[in-house]
Design a protein around this nucleic acid. Structure first.
Length: 642
RNA sequence: GGGCACGUAGCUCAGUUGGAUAGAGCGGUCGCCUCCUAAGCGACAGGUCGGCGGUUCAAAUCCGCCCGUGCCUACCA
């Protein structure tokens, strides 16, 4: 609503200025810091001052004088030394909110692909992975909420070094045959992803002390690539079981995917060979005959030496396969995967996984018009190489539409390491934070963190609601834990390094997920309580006309609160264009703050005046709706009670 | 050496792309449960926006130079 008027105001000024002064000015509309300056402010007079060689105040006065009426605007006035402040027609504004917004547009047209999570399937997920998945998933929700068609991909590198290292651990260090590993996977007493977490750290440590053991890794990688023998079988077992574990972990946070493209199919279906031909044909890569990179295929342009894509032994670098995959996402490779269904989510969404067996699945993935790769900022160079690859092939537009949705890492504060009993080197202790490292086994496992959050929430819930069943309380605690964790990971802007702090993550007070949930629960409670007392909820549209709205909204308090609550669309749009989930999180918090304030000040159920009570109830239900919508975009569930 | 981030209250962070008196949360001090749930609300204290210079009606925001921190800069993934 607010957003619509904002646009109307900008348009009105733009048109008037073009006609009156012949200047094509891009008019910005701001929100004044002080509420008594009105709801919007237009600094256009300042921008015009230079070109017109007149005092801003004089221009502003002229604009206000000559500008015709704008729908929804009650008054325009000159303030300060040239600001134009705008006051909205409160009654009309309230009435149009009451009438409800236009029907949501059905997603159509071009498809946006968002790739996120992408965890190496060789060990349990940690908080760093959670930041990726939560950011990606929330961005997907944001895009969908603003009417886009989105496909979610989670890339599985099931043939890489990391999987190979765990296979080395099983085969060479623990001497376990595939049958024994199958037994471990099936054993309910063993958490296979946790087992591999330790094994991976163990193998890495072994390499450190016995560098000659790295030959095992090479051998294993070859076996995996050939797809034969025990080592390859182990790799499949490990990767499939861990992918299963990751999907389960992410599902706990309500993160779902549409398709899992796997590295093994990229190999077997020879995506790279197709991409290699294209790259050679169009001279996006060149063969070096001398110098440092003699014998390699190199992509020029990015740096002076260029980036090696094919090694002198003829094998392709990881980034090369990434270029092939990126081409496939845009439907530019001329090859495709086959698919088989992996599972069906509770909401009916089907998850597919790639296969190299020719089957008719009836689904089509890829062919996106825009691609977001959610990958941490350390990989920006590699992402640049991928985009440069597309550019080199002549796909300039697709290169520009390949967006590295980057974010900073999650690190551990030295204090946090101490709390978790993680030993640190002398050097690390002096750092502001320590990088999470799967290789070193250094980090907080996602499921452990979620479990301790649930445990803590459960203590609180049980102490508040001893009368409710253990099962119900557990469900509530789980939702609170999810809300706390997702909000914690989303409240920071993407380029802020999160120095993970256990205390802060475990907090349920202040700017946290549970604060939002609490506001929504209270709003629901008021409406439920009102109905409980025998009176049905009033028909708001029938009882509140524009005049009644105007009367109630004379109260500055009500007006400010309603304004805040009606800015959801505006907040979403700016968050989408900035690519910042944290903006949505901030808005959700402000919304909850506004409601908490309202809740404290105005006892809805005890209100005596009928019109005022109807109005308060309407405000409550409006808040409830906005809170629930915004929380849903953040992937934060609302508990039944708190 | 080069590239990309960052430096804002005791701590952790926002700051709508250059606008009016720089904001939250935590922590601190003091208040508020006979009334829809105190995971809440109110009040107070807390700032040379790393430093210096520049651009202009206007700079935390843009430019330059310093100081400090982190990441990247592989024929690893």
């Amino acid at each position: 609503m607010f957003h619509t008027i904002e646009k109307q105001v900008a348009d009105a000024f733009h048109t008037h200025i073009r006609i009156r002064y012949g200047i094509d000015l891009s008019v910005t509309v701001e929100q004044p810091r002080q509420s008594d300056f009105g709801e919007m402010a237009v600094p256009a007079a300042f921008q015009l001052a230079r070109q017109l060689r007149q005092a801003p105040r004089k221009i502003a006065a002229e604009l206000v004088e000559e500008l015709g009426p704008i729908a929804g605007v009650a008054a325009t006035e000159v303030a300060g030394n040239g600001y134009i402040n705008i006051r909205l027609d409160r009654g009309a504004y309230g009435a149009s909110l009451l009438a409800g917004d236009a029907a949501a547009e059905t997603p159509a047209g071009e498809k946006i692909i968002v790739e996120h999570t992408n965890i190496n399937p060789n060990k349990a997920a940690h908080i760093g992975h959670l930041r990726n998945a939560t950011l990606g998933d929330t961005f997907v929700r944001m895009l969908r909420a603003s009417g886009n068609r989105v496909e979610v991909q989670n890339y599985i590198d099931n043939t890489g070094v990391q999987v190979a290292d765990v296979v080395v651990g099983f085969h060479y260090l623990e001497h376990l045959a595939p049958a024994a590993v199958r037994g471990l996977i099936a054993d309910p007493a063993v958490r296979f992803d946790y087992y591999c977490w330790d094994l991976y750290a163990g193998t890495s440590a072994w390499y450190h002390d016995h560098p000659e053991a790295l030959a095992w890794r090479t051998q294993t990688l070859h076996a995996i690539e050939a797809g034969e023998g025990e080592l390859a079988e182990l790799a499949h077992l490990v990767a499939d079981a861990i992918v299963e574990a990751h999907l389960a972990t992410m599902l706990r946070l309500d993160v779902e995917y549409d398709v899992l493209p796997r590295e093994s199919e990229i190999l077997h279906l020879e995506f790279w060979a197709a991409a290699f031909e294209l790259l050679k044909e169009r001279h996006a890569i060149v063969f070096e005959t001398e110098g440092k990179h003699a014998g390699c295929w190199v992509m020029p342009g990015l740096s002076e030496e260029g980036k090696v894509i094919v090694r002198s032994d003829g094998t392709v670098v990881y980034t090369g396969k990434d270029i092939a995959y990126q081409l496939w996402k845009f439907g530019l490779l001329g090859k495709d995967f086959y698919y088989r269904p992996l599972k069906t989510y509770a909401d009916g969404r089907m998850l597919w996984v790639t296969t190299d067996q020719p089957v008719e699945s009836g689904v089509r993935f890829g062919h996106g018009s825009r691609v977001y790769n959610v990958i941490d900022s350390r990989q920006s160079y590699l992402q640049d190489v991928v985009a440069e690859g597309l550019r080199g092939l002549g796909y300039r537009e697709q290169a520009d539409r390949s967006i590295h949705f980057s974010y900073e890492m999650v690190a551990l504060s030295p204090r946090c390491c101490a709390e978790l009993g993680i030993p640190l080197s002398e050097e690390d202790r002096k750092r502001p934070y320590v990088e999470v490292s799967g290789r070193k086994g250094l980090g907080v496992k996602a499921d452990d963190l979620l479990d301790s959050l649930i445990g803590k929430a459960l203590d609180e819930v049980v102490s508040r609601h001893p009368e409710d069943s253990a099962e119900q309380n557990r469900a509530v605690a789980t939702r609170i834990a999810i809300g706390a964790l997702r909000y914690f990971l989303l409240k920071f802007t993407r380029n802020t390094v999160i120095a993970f702090d256990l205390q802060e993550a475990l907090s349920f007070e202040g700017e946290t997920g549970p604060y939002l949930q609490y506001a929504a629960v209270r709003a629901r409670k008021i409406l439920a309580k009102f109905a409980e007392r025998g009176a049905p909820l009033p028909d708001f549209a029938a009882e509140l006309n524009a005049a009644a709205m105007a009367r109630q909204l004379q109260s500055e308090d009500f007006w400010q609160v309603l304004l805040a609550a009606s800015k959801a669309e505006s907040a979403l749009e700016s968050a989408v264009s900035a690519g910042e989930p944290s903006h949505v999180a901030r808005y959700a918090f402000q919304l909850a703050q506004a409601f908490s304030n309202f809740y404290q000040k105005y006892p809805v159920i005890h209100e005596q005046n009928r019109e005022r009570q109807v109005f308060l109830l309407w405000m409550t239900s409006f808040f409830r709706q906005q809170l629930e919508r915004t929380a849903a975009i953040l992937g934060i569930p609302i508990p039944e009670y708190m």
